[in-house]
Design a protein around this nucleic acid. Structure first.
Length: 591
DNA sequence: GGCACGACTTGTCGACACTTAT
DNA sequence: ATAAGTGTCGACAAGTCGTGCC
């Protein structure tokens, strides 16, 4: 694969870097679409880089004990806590306003972990969370945050400069001749774990990460990052088959966390590109695959039927694969393969439609998926069969899991897995919606509304919902008020124009008045478009699909075709992430 | 197969910065 | 100048999926 579009200032040794020469961009464009032999030429056997140097992570600032006048009270009496216990208490006190702290599980988990940090005296005394009074601590932190807001410009600037310094020192690494931005070079600070949805571990203590917890990954011939004075890294390794720079094990789930590169980096960009190329290959054979699973609905084998219905859901409804999860470790959420009988309802007939399936379950991040869809008769009959003699909490697809499913998909097409369908369907929907909705004669704001509507169709498909912003109603009213004011203004301008026309002497004014009317009309139209857009976007989040599912070349091509500035579609970060696409896609790009 | 694990992508949210209205 | 509204970005949780082991 070719990487030719990194910003020139990032280049370390331009003349040595054949693949990064902008001059080659044009000539290579023809080749890159259908093969990726370039990457294979550069790196074989999963090698991700040849040189990697970085400064290691930035640790969370150490705990600063409370001033002595800020007290914790137990059973109404002030009590001085040991620094360890005090720190954990401050975590709780900072969350007092949050609903979390009223939840039983949260309180139970917190109290259990807090007690582990107490001295034996403290442990003996503090036995009931209800008797703990954190309000003084809470007030203290509120005060601090007020003070932060009230800082002078100079103080704020100073902090900003310090952050910039840290970014320059720790926020970049060198990977194969490029200075690349790191995504998350700061180690997550300690605190109380807040899972999403009904999480059994909410409130547990997320412990502080120390140098001895950290594994550094870099190349042998690089300057290794130094641990803070008096400390040691857990390990320094040189594994160029992976892309991470730093890792540690987190104590809530025992999973590994990583420091990796920013989406603007070569390594992430190439991967992203590859993802869309896989989706485009699916486009070429999706008809065959669809025919295949429709055929499989009739199979004699139960597992084949289940597999075929599951793929149908994944394809038609853009469901996620649905790996099984360890019970009690995470919130109870499901995807396609882990659907249970209780998550669907079958209606032979519903609101004038035949064979309707009603889905109602919690998906990723405990976001509700609710949908009523008519399906083919065969699917319906199969579902009835799958549900026979089962309890509500039994698996719908008892002969299927993601591993089996993906193995099958892999056989149908190289690189095919469940999530490729999501990418494919999202991107193809955008492309098709853009074709359908864009009106040549409309102005730029109207075209952008069309773009957002196309984007919205995808977000709905992928179930990317959001809670309506707290200020939604208000901001809608404000916008409406603006529109009303603009309407009045327009009426006035029109009257002026009429008066000027009627008055023979006003000939000279006529032109400018006409212009004024036109300008106001345009402004009004812009506001109205904005209102429509916002209203339609009330419960829908566009960001996730834009960032993860929509081949950016479709958007870039659309912008080029209609003369829309790319900035109207992608903000700065997005443009950085999609630099590869902005550089390569022409107006005739077809997904 | 089934399972644990590691690496990587996807997802939501809230803090903060920036902009505009008052 | 301040408040309010809006957009951006980072934090970090929660998915997917391939691998290697038994």
């Amino acid at each position: 694969m070719v990487w030719f579009c990194s910003p020139p200032h990032m280049k370390i040794e331009p003349e040595e870097d054949f693949y990064h020469s902008p001059k080659l961009a044009k000539s290579l464009k023809r080749e890159r679409d259908d093969d990726n032999e370039w990457e294979e030429e550069r790196y074989t056997d999963g090698v991700k880089w040849k040189f990697l140097e970085h400064k290691g992570p930035v640790f969370a600032p150490p705990y600063e004990p409370l001033p002595s006048n800020v007290k914790f009270y137990y059973d109404g009496k002030p009590m001085k806590l040991s620094p360890e216990a005090e720190e954990v208490a401050t975590f709780f006190s900072k969350m007092l306003d949050h609903e979390y702290t009223t939840k039983d599980i949260f309180r139970k988990n917190f109290f259990k972990d807090w007690r582990k940090e107490m001295t034996s005296e403290e442990k003996a005394k503090i036995t009931d969370l209800k008797k703990c009074n954190f309000t003084e601590m809470s007030e203290y932190f509120k005060g601090l945050s007020e003070a932060r807001k009230a800082m002078t410009k100079e103080q704020k600037l100073k902090i900003k400069e310090e952050n910039e310094r840290l970014l320059q020192e720790y926020g970049f690494c060198i990977m194969d001749n490029h200075r690349e931005r790191i995504a998350n070079f700061r180690i997550e600070p300690p605190g109380l774990f807040r899972g999403r949805g009904d999480h059994p571990k909410m409130g547990m203590l997320k412990r502080r990460i120390r140098p001895q917890d950290i594994i550094i990954n870099c190349s042998k011939n690089s300057k290794h990052p130094e641990p803070p004075p008096g400390t040691k890294w857990k390990e320094v390794r040189h594994d160029n088959k992976v892309t991470w720079l730093v890792s540690w094990t987190e104590n809530i789930q025992g999973s590994i966390k990583y420091i990796m590169l920013n989406p603007s980096s070569r390594i992430k960009g190439e991967k992203d590109w590859q993802k869309y190329e896989t989706a485009r290959r699916l486009k070429k054979c999706v008809d065959r695959i669809r025919a295949q699973y429709r055929e499989d609905w009739k199979s004699k084998e139960m597992r084949v039927r289940q597999r075929a219905v599951a793929i149908y859901f994944i394809d038609k409804l853009a469901l996620r694969a649905g790996n099984e999860k360890e019970e009690g470790e995470t919130a109870d959420t499901v995807g396609c393969c882990s659907l249970r009988v209780e998550h669907i309802k079958l209606y032979p007939e519903n609101e004038g439609q035949e064979y309707v399936v009603e889905f109602d379950f919690l998906g990723k991040d405990s976001i509700r998926y609710y949908n009523k869809v008519p399906v083919e008769k065969r699917v319906f009959k199969n579902l009835q069969l799958f549900m026979e003699n089962k309890e509500p909490d039994d698996d719908l697809f008892d002969r299927l899991n993601t591993s089996v499913l993906n193995k099958h998909l892999q056989e149908l097409m190289d690189g095919l897995s469940a999530k490729v369908f999501r990418t494919y369907n999202a991107s193809i929907t955008l492309q098709q919606q853009l074709k359908e909705l864009t009106n040549e004669d409309e102005n730029i704001p109207a075209k952008i509304l069309s773009y957002n509507r196309a984007n919205r169709a995808v977000a709905i498909l992928c179930n990317h919902q959001r809670a309506p912003p707290k200020t939604f109603e208000k901001s809608m009213q404000n916008l409406q008020a603006k529109i009303d004011a603009k309407r009045d203004q327009l009426a006035n301008a029109k009257r002026d124009l009429k008066a000027a026309k009627a008055d023979a002497k006003g000939l000279r004014d006529d032109k400018s008045k006409k212009k004024a009317v036109q300008r106001i009309e345009e402004q009004l139209m812009k506001l109205e478009v904005q209102a429509t857009d916002r209203e339609e976007n009330k419960q829908i989040a566009l960001g996730t699909s834009k960032l993860n599912y929509l081949d950016p070349r479709i958007s870039v091509a659309w912008c080029k075709k209609w003369g829309i500035p790319i900035e109207k579609i992608y903000n700065k970060t997005q443009r950085e992430k999609f630099a590869w696409a902005i550089d390569m896609a022409e107006k005739d790009f077809e997904f």
